[in-house]
Nucleic acid binder design. Structure first.
Length: 886
RNA sequence: GGGAGAUUAGCUCAGUUGGUUAGAGCACCUGUCUUACAAACAGGGGGUCGCAGGUUCGAGUCCUGCAUCGCCCA
């Protein structure tokens, strides 16, 4: 591949046009293999695995946020000299994908999957995957994701399938995978079992039906209450609390199930709450979780009355064939007609619905495959408890503990066609049916001629929980696995904490014997302006690609990062991206301040030492160094928003608003080479600091600020470090005072409505230490406050007809002949005095508190003392000024 | 019912182990085409940090209770 097969000649110095920059740089990085990692590298690895998006997915804001974070971390570490790997890929997303393809077939051909048959349908899904799958990965490129595309994986590619089968077989051999008939969550719409985690419980308004069951000895009735009258056809007992005196005499007797001829016993079980409903409970082991438990305890018959499409089966007698809810109506009507219905109450009950299809789940008895989770959960709990894995923010650990401590077995078989076939084989009988009597064999390959494989597939998470190591080649012992496992940090939302994050930790510990990553950075979720989830049905989604087109990828990334505070959800509004766009525009334009003076092809390098620099230059360099130190700390703790915020302030608030304004020559004059050299140096360093967050504009401007050798690009440059030799806190302090003096003068100008174009004079009365610093920099006041006539002195009296500003031990007088309004001036000063006096009082209050002085740390007390002296001096000066006006 | 959050300027939110006079962006008001940027610049107004207690020399920050909002789990 030809290096540099992309035109990267700098874009013109016209308006900032993100699209033109972004379309050139991504291909450049990719074609030059700059994202590619090497397992032979001596560099320390830094590894992130991308949460694999659904193969049918489209990029949404949640992806944009998480990708921005992952990419920023990857780019940062790459610049810091790590072998920074970000593994991309996709998830086959069982049900989701199958549904999408089925819908498409229905729409386009009017066919369902059964019209095709399993093999042809699965082929169809693969075709579909080849055609539409991975669109999202293209979309991620638009954002600038610097993942190692050579390591892209799919949860159903050959290697992954191999890993999944291997895991199933191993777990089976270890006794951790088992088959059994239990009450599972059945989704009648998707026609498959789903795991407990895929079920949501929602409160629905419903009714509580009070029914009475006749005692078979003819001695009367027992009354029960139920939210699901139709399940009475599957009742196999009535239960009461053993302590409930109303019913003790009935325990052991039998009742007849209304509308049927079946007789069932009355049993006692402490599970029954006497104060709920009528105090007696109908027990339907085949259709209710709790009833199932009671049934097991009392060895009750399990009577299934339902088909897989949620219609009633032959056990329902005359109701067979009716949908469960139609049956309910009819049964209630019949009960009423026959005198078994006592009354109906309004009642809000919790209804289980499928996370995906939103259909009401039916608890059904079914033979499925499960994973025994307790033995896997223990080490996973331990890994977080002992600190091998840390959550950011920490509070998610509690959620993690709670789930793992109460973990239930995982239903992993799914009655779908799209997914990993379960590696279990059966013998057939003479009729070609599965011969259950001969059992089964668990095996990756067909164990014997003629055996058939289990029809079911595995839960999609049963493959994605292997993501951190299966993507690196497991179960083979690959060099990638050796180099890049365990990973460094996982970036994900809390919505898949149980589905994915916790299970990856279990799998990592079990199969690799080591944690999958050290840190887990949980991002907040993106919500709409009103705090609602973004969804297709609400139509409140914000399309990241549209935003990228409108504002630029750098702008989108900047805004998302700055809004991403530790674990807080983000209420997003498209106007938020203006912040990023404005900043990118600012960066672009700032370059022109000195860029317009630069000679084409010339490399500007600073020749002056720190001591030889100008006051403002020394200050700016100091600020830069301090910011690098601060940012380093923020980023190490995943406080990207704070780190980026500091860079933003540095660039806009310090570099642009003060530094550039000061080094800018008068109109028509040139800028000295040395001035340019430092401006370039500062700018270049800030481009590096910004690169992880705004890769495109920084890469582009990188080529503008200096002539670059082939391959000298921002992305692979070395992350800046603070240089103590280029920092001076004293200078920074002095400069801050000058800033305050200038602000004071500007304030006076605004107060007296002095036209911005009008020159003024000013008298600076400074403490001796500052005189030297300011003396040579009268032009600062000229440039920033239009003070053309400046007197600098250490003492003296107030010039006539002047306004004054006090800054610590310094004071500035602004003579405004003919403009000073004494009343305005008195008011100004008085207001200032009042403010300072209040401040003075609060400090004095502290210092006169003996407790404070004796108990607070000496440094804190001293700070207060210093402040007191300072503010007293200020008040004194202000008062003197006021007195002079009297 | 349990858990973990949120409540700070008109709006959206930062605010680290308790220690300058609580910050930003947007919005608002005044002024500016000051030759990088009007997607900008300068200046300004605006907060008893949800309420009530407590701990502490000191609380937006820690503790308890309450209120409101949504989230997770049963």
């Amino acid at each position: 591949m030809a290096r540099n097969a992309v035109d990267i000649s700098p874009a013109g110095r016209g308006k900032y046009d993100p699209a033109s920059i972004e379309s050139r740089w991504y291909p450049y990085w990719e074609k030059n293999d700059l994202f590619r990692t090497n397992h032979d590298s001596e560099k320390e690895p830094h590894v992130i695995v991308m949460p694999p998006p659904n193969v049918t997915g489209r990029l949404h804001m949640g992806h944009a946020l998480q990708d921005t974070v992952q990419d920023a971390l990857t780019r940062l570490r790459r610049m810091q000299g790590f072998e920074a790997l970000w593994v991309p890929g996709m998830d086959h997303a069982g049900i989701a994908t199958q549904n999408v393809v089925e819908k498409t077939l229905k729409k386009e051909e009017g066919k369902n999957r059964h019209d095709y048959g399993r093999e042809a349908f699965v082929d169809k899904v693969w075709e579909w995957k080849e055609e539409y799958g991975g669109i999202i990965l293209e979309q991620k490129r638009r954002l600038g994701d610097s993942c190692d595309w050579s390591k892209e994986r799919f949860t159903m590619d050959d290697g992954f399938s191999r890993a999944v089968q291997e895991v199933f077989v191993r777990l089976y051999n270890e006794g951790l995978v088992y088959r059994g008939e239990y009450l599972i969550n059945w989704c009648p719409v998707d026609r498959t079992a789903i795991s407990d985690e895929e079920v949501e419980n929602v409160e629905r308004k419903g009714h509580l039906w009070y029914l009475r069951y006749p005692l078979t000895d003819g001695s009367g009735f027992i009354e029960i209450a139920t939210t699901r009258p139709e399940t009475m056809l599957g009742d196999t007992a009535i239960a009461v609390n053993p302590e409930d005196e109303r019913y003790t005499h009935l325990v052991g007797k039998t009742v007849r199930v209304p509308l049927t001829d079946r007789q069932i016993p009355i049993i006692a079980d402490e599970y029954v709450k006497s104060d709920f409903g009528a105090g007696a409970l109908k027990v339907t082991p085949a259709h209710d979780k709790n009833d199932f438990e009671i049934g097991r305890k009392h060895d009750l018959e399990i009577l299934n009355i339902m088909n897989l499409d949620a219609t009633l089966n032959e056990n329902a007698g005359v109701y067979a064939g009716l949908d469960r809810f139609d049956a309910r109506e009819k049964i209630v009507a019949d009960l009423e007609a026959q005198g078994f219905l006592v009354r109906i109450e309004e009642y809000a009950s919790t209804v289980p619905i499928s996370h995906r299809s939103k259909a009401i789940i039916e608890p059904l008895i079914s033979r499925q495959w499960f994973v025994k989770m307790k033995p896997l959960a223990e080490p996973a709990l331990e890994a977080v408890r002992d600190g091998r894995i840390t959550f950011y923010p920490k509070r998610w650990e509690n959620e993690y503990f709670r789930w793992l401590e109460n973990i239930r077995d995982w239903t992993i078989s799914r009655q779908l066609w799209w997914g990993h076939r379960i590696p279990v084989w059966y013998w057939l009988d003479a009729d070609g049916e599965i011969d259950e009597s001969r059992g089964f064999r668990v095996s990756i390959e067909q164990p014997e001629e003629g055996m058939v494989q289990d029809e079911d597939v595995l839960d999609t998470w049963f493959s994605s929980w292997l993501w951190p190591f299966a993507t690196l080649g497991w179960p083979e012992k690959t060099p990638d696995l050796a180099k890049f496992y365990p990973g460094t940090v996982l970036v994900s939302g809390y919505d898949i904490l149980f589905f994915w994050i916790a299970r990856m930790i279990m799998a990592g510990l079990h199969f690799m014997g080591d944690i999958p990553y050290k840190d887990i950075f949980i991002t907040g979720m993106i919500k709409d302006k009103q705090g609602r989830w973004m969804s297709k049905s609400l139509g409140n989604g914000i399309d990241p690609l549209e935003m990228t087109e409108q504002y630029g990828a750098d702008a989108v990334r900047f805004s998302l990062t700055i809004l991403c505070a530790q674990g807080q959800d983000i209420k997003l509004d498209p106007t938020k991206f203006e912040m990023g766009r404005n900043f990118a525009n600012k960066i672009w334009n700032a370059f022109n301040v000195f860029g317009q003076f630069m000679e084409e092809g010339k490399d500007y390098r600073r020749k002056r030492s720190f001591a030889e620099l100008d006051f403002a230059e020394q200050w700016m360099l100091t600020r830069l160094g301090q910011t690098i130190l601060d940012v380093e700390e923020d980023l190490a703790r995943y406080r990207l928003n704070e780190g980026l915020g500091k860079i933003y302030t540095l660039f806009w608030g310090d570099y642009c608003d003060w530094y550039l304004e000061l080094i800018k020559p008068q109109s028509g004059e040139p800028m000295s080479e040395e001035r340019i050299a430092l401006a370039v140096e500062l700018f270049e360093t800030m481009l590096q600091l910004l690169h992880p967050f705004m890769p495109f504009i920084t890469e582009e401007l990188w080529t503008h600020v200096r002539p670059r050798e082939e391959g000298d690009i921002c992305m692979t440059s070395a992350w800046p470090t603070a240089n103590k030799a280029d920092m001076d806190a004293g200078v920074a302090g002095h400069f801050a005072t000058v800033q305050e003096l200038i602000s004071g003068i500007r304030n006076v100008r605004a107060q007296y409505a002095v036209s911005p174009s009008q020159d003024i004079s000013a008298v600076l009365q400074l403490e001796p230490g500052l005189v030297a610093a300011v003396e040579g920099h009268r032009e600062y006041f000229a440039k920033l406050a239009r003070v053309t006539d400046l007197e600098v002195r250490t003492g003296g009296s107030r010039p006539a007809a002047s306004s004054s500003v006090v800054v610590g031990r310094n004071q500035v007088f602004v003579p405004l002949k003919g403009m000073i309004d004494l009343d305005v001036e008195r008011e100004r000063l008085q207001k200032e005095i009042d403010e300072k006096t209040r401040y003075h009082k609060s400090i004095e209050g502290k210092l006169s508190n003996e407790q404070f002085v004796s108990r607070a740390p000496e440094a804190v007390v001293q700070t207060e003392r210093d402040k007191l002296v300072e503010v007293m001096a200020e008040i004194k000066r202000l008062q003197a000024s006021l007195d002079e006006l009297a």
